[in-house]
Simulated scan of single mutants.
Amino acid sequence: MIDEVFVDVKERMTKAVEAAREGFATVRTGRANPSLLQNVQVDYYGTPTPLSQLASVANQDARSLLITPYDKGAMKDIEQAIRDMPNLGANPSNDGNVIRVTLPELTEERRKEFVKIVKGRAEDARVAIRNVRRHGKDSLDALKSEVGEDEINRAEKELDSVTKQFIDQIDESLKHKEAELLEV
C-alpha cells in the first residue's frame, strides 16, 4: 500500500519537473529555437490550434526561425498569433510561401526579465511538488490504522527525501537556464 502511494507521488513529481523544463524551454535565450513557439495557439477557422499542427518550424540561423505552413491560407493567422505572443518581441514577415521570424537582440534588462520569469516558473513547479508531497502525506496518514505508526513515520521520511530530490532537479534546471539566459 505504501509502495502504491510512492509510485503515484514519484510519477506526479516527475510530471511537475517535466512541465517546469518545458516551461523553461519556451523562454527565449539569445538563440532562436523552435521550442520558443511550442505554446503558440493559432486561431485556425475559429478553433485554437497548436502551431505544430499547422506548420513546420526550423532554425534558419542563430536569430531567426523559418515557419512553413501546411495550409497557405493560415499564414495571416499564424503571423498574428506570433505577433500576439508575450515575451517574444518578434515581428514575423511572410513572402507568400514561408514566414520568417527574426528575434531581436536581447538587452541586459530583457535578459533579467526573462530570469525573473524562469524563477517564477521554477517556484510554481516547487509548489506543485510540495502539493504532491502533501497529498502523499495525507494518503499515508489514511493508512495509519492498517500499517502502523512506525512504518508511516519511515515512509514520511522517505517522502521528504524524494521531495527534496525532485526540488533539487528543478533547482538544477533553473541554474542551467539562468546561466543560458545571462550568457552574452
Score class of each variant (00 low, 15 high):
residue 3 D to W: 08
residue 121 R to V: 00
residue 3 D to M: 07
residue 179 A to H: 10
residue 17 V to W: 06
residue 92 P to H: 02
residue 148 G to T: 05
residue 116 K to M: 04
residue 74 A to Y: 01
residue 14 T to A: 15
residue 43 D to T: 02
residue 98 V to F: 10
residue 71 D to I: 05
residue 31 R to W: 09
residue 21 R to S: 09
residue 49 T to W: 04
residue 113 E to Y: 04
residue 44 Y to H: 08
residue 128 A to W: 02
residue 140 L to Q: 09
residue 95 D to H: 05
residue 3 D to K: 11
residue 156 E to D: 13
residue 101 V to C: 05
residue 146 E to D: 15
residue 82 I to M: 02
residue 168 D to A: 14
residue 100 R to Y: 12
residue 100 R to M: 12
residue 57 V to T: 13
residue 183 E to A: 15
residue 78 I to L: 01
residue 109 E to V: 13
residue 67 I to K: 11
residue 148 G to N: 13
residue 11 E to F: 13
residue 80 Q to F: 09
residue 156 E to Q: 14
residue 168 D to Q: 15
residue 160 D to W: 10
residue 81 A to M: 00
residue 36 L to D: 00
residue 153 N to H: 15
residue 128 A to C: 08
residue 112 K to R: 14
residue 152 I to M: 09
residue 9 V to S: 08
residue 140 L to T: 05
residue 102 T to L: 07
residue 81 A to L: 02
residue 3 D to Y: 05
residue 37 L to R: 03
residue 154 R to V: 11
residue 19 A to R: 07
residue 128 A to T: 10
residue 79 E to S: 01
residue 159 L to Y: 07
residue 142 A to P: 06
residue 39 N to Y: 00
residue 35 S to H: 02
residue 122 A to N: 01
residue 10 K to H: 08
residue 39 N to K: 05
residue 177 K to W: 03
residue 119 K to H: 12
residue 122 A to W: 04
residue 169 Q to M: 10
residue 81 A to S: 04
residue 149 E to F: 13
residue 183 E to W: 11
residue 85 M to I: 03
residue 94 N to I: 05
residue 24 F to H: 02
residue 137 K to Y: 15
residue 136 G to L: 06
residue 138 D to F: 11
residue 137 K to W: 13
residue 32 A to P: 13
residue 153 N to Y: 14
residue 77 D to N: 04
residue 119 K to V: 04
residue 168 D to E: 15
residue 64 S to D: 12
residue 88 L to N: 01
residue 94 N to L: 08
residue 39 N to W: 03
residue 127 V to P: 03
residue 57 V to D: 05
residue 106 L to P: 01
residue 168 D to S: 13
residue 136 G to F: 04
residue 163 T to G: 03
residue 136 G to H: 01
residue 180 E to V: 06
residue 97 N to R: 15
residue 168 D to K: 09
residue 127 V to D: 08
residue 145 S to F: 14
residue 106 L to H: 00
residue 129 I to C: 04
residue 52 S to T: 15
residue 80 Q to M: 10
residue 123 E to F: 03
residue 27 V to F: 09
